[in-house]
Design a protein around this nucleic acid. Structure first.
Length: 203
DNA sequence: AAGGACAGCAACCGCAATATT
DNA sequence: AAATATTGCGGTTGCTGTCCT
């Protein structure tokens, strides 16, 4: 069954057909019904053993897919959207220290997922670095160790430190992203199930 | 209004690490 | 100790909305 998305559809939509063959592994965006099933299953049985979750819940998803969906979206403590200036600064500092260890960085940002931080880094920070790099190249072409910032992650850490410093002074110029916090449906929509079950052994 | 370019992000893939048999 | 299964992580893809011309 394909649930219509409330908002903008995103991500891959590998399988969109209404009828799916028996035993076929589903890919692509999760439907609300799938979210509901997974959410409910984990509330009753707990996290982990993702392959079992996938099979026992009846979802035609891989264990990996279930795990990812839970961690990045359904988990009740997940905070979504609106990465604050402080969080941005922390991400920059941690990345300078840890590199692309997104899960490690995420541990320092309660409620944020590695995927979200990774996406944020790639879409915002890297782009900003690239832009400022080009800007500097245009204005300081005259020799003296022009900071030819690469857009790759490697070698960006040192620059990130500089950036963090300037960033703390000029948050406003950083173009802090205020994203829409809407989703196809809110995780909160699933919470009544939690309450009905009266099952709190997870989370 | 049309459509091309760009941005944002959910979700997949491949691989490495770890656990289990 | 070796083989197999599972989990976790980082990189990448590709769909959709928005902006710009």
């Amino acid at each position: 069954m394909e649930t219509t998305m409330k908002k903008k559809g995103r991500g891959k939509a590998t399988i969109t057909s209404q009828k799916e063959e028996e035993g076929t592994v589903r890919k692509g965006p999760w439907t609300m019904e799938e979210d509901f099933i997974l959410f409910n299953y984990i509330l009753n049985h707990g996290e982990g053993l993702w392959n079992s979750v996938a099979k026992a819940s009846g979802l035609k998803r891989t264990g990996k897919s279930c795990r990812l969906r839970w961690l990045n979206y359904l988990r009740p403590d997940v905070r979504r959207g609106n990465i604050t200036a402080e969080e941005q600064l922390l991400i920059i500092q941690l990345h300078a220290k840890l590199g692309n260890r997104w899960s490690k960085i995420a541990k320092h940002l309660p409620g944020r997922t590695d995927n979200e931080i990774k996406n944020f880094w790639r879409t915002k920070i890297q782009r900003h670095m690239k832009v400022s790099s080009e800007h500097m190249m245009n204005h300081h072409c005259s020799g003296s160790q022009s900071s030819g910032m690469t857009t790759t992650d490697q070698g960006s850490s040192g620059k990130a430190i500089d950036m963090a410093e300037s960033f703390s002074q000029a948050k406003t110029t950083f173009n802090v992203v205020e994203q829409s916090n809407e989703n196809y449906w809110n995780v909160e929509d699933l919470w009544p199930v939690h309450l009905l079950n009266g099952d709190h052994h997870v989370i």
